[in-house]
């Protein structure tokens, strides 16, 4: 594994500089039953294909970002800071 992730702050950097934060998933509401929270904590889609993921640029700007990655080819199609996307 040595693919590059385009960091919105730092540019193309090696995946080794990042911490993987898992799939982007909306958490259940606070009123949701415990079972939903258990699923949220332990179940993963684990897509063979394109998925949105959290990444933290540990050895760079030290910010969280989201990246859209093809898990088969490790091609990162897009990356952005969540704040930028909402605007």
């Amino acid at each position: 594994m040595s693919f590059l992730i385009p960091c919105p702050n730092c540019g193309n950097r090696s995946v080794y500089e990042f911490r993987f934060g898992g799939e982007v998933q909306a958490p259940p509401t606070s009123a949701a039953p415990p079972g939903d929270w258990q699923k949220h904590r332990f179940n993963r889609v684990n897509a063979a294909g394109v998925q949105a993921e959290w990444w933290f640029h540990r050895s760079g700007c030290r910010q969280w970002m989201q990246a859209v990655r093809n898990t088969v080819s490790n091609e990162v199609l897009e990356s952005f800071l969540p704040g930028d996307k909402q605007e």
């Binding site: 730092c10 950097r13 500089e17 050895s59 760079g60 030290r62």
Partner: peptide
């Protein structure tokens, strides 16, 4: 820029 230098940020 920011990066690791000798294993330190």
């Amino acid at each position: 820029a920011q990066a690791s230098l000798a294993h330190a940020h």
